[in-house]
Amino acid sequence: MARTVPTPAQPKGPGQVTVADIQEYTDYYTDFRNPGREAARESFCPHGYRLTDSCPNCPSC
């Protein structure tokens, strides 16, 4: 059985994803099987890390 991943009503594009988006829709924006991962990969946290990488200062990155 396929698992259902919560998806934002209006997914954000590359460079537009925020740390808050990652916190609310973690699987959608971080799982490589979902289209949101590419958008998150091209977005950065306030400390300069890609949202798909680990930032030592952000709780959700």
Rank of each mutant, 00 (worst) to 15 (best):
M1A: 04
M1F: 10
A2W: 04
R3H: 09
R3E: 03
T4Y: 01
T4I: 09
V5R: 00
V5S: 00
P6Y: 10
P6N: 12
T7E: 02
T7H: 13
T7S: 07
P8V: 08
P8I: 14
P8W: 14
K12G: 06
P14N: 05
G15Y: 08
G15K: 01
Q16P: 08
Q16R: 14
T18D: 12
V19W: 07
V19Y: 12
A20H: 05
A20M: 09
A20R: 09
D21E: 06
I22E: 01
I22Y: 06
Q23A: 13
E24Q: 15
E24N: 09
Y25R: 03
Y25H: 04
Y25G: 06
Y25P: 03
T26P: 03
T26C: 13
T26Q: 14
Y28H: 12
Y29L: 08
Y29M: 13
Y29H: 12
T30F: 03
T30G: 03
T30Y: 04
D31V: 08
F32H: 14
F32P: 13
F32D: 15
R33A: 03
R33N: 00
N34H: 13
N34F: 01
N34T: 05
P35K: 11
P35H: 12
G36D: 11
G36N: 15
E38V: 01
E38H: 06
E38G: 00
R41G: 15
R41N: 09
S43Y: 00
F44C: 09
C45L: 08
C45R: 04
P46R: 09
P46A: 02
H47N: 07
H47L: 05
H47M: 10
G48H: 01
G48R: 02
Y49I: 02
R50G: 00
R50S: 12
R50L: 08
L51K: 12
T52A: 03
D53M: 05
S54E: 08
S54G: 08
C55Q: 12
P56A: 10
N57R: 12
C58T: 11
C58A: 09
P59F: 09
P59Q: 15
P59I: 15
S60G: 06
C61K: 05
C61Q: 11
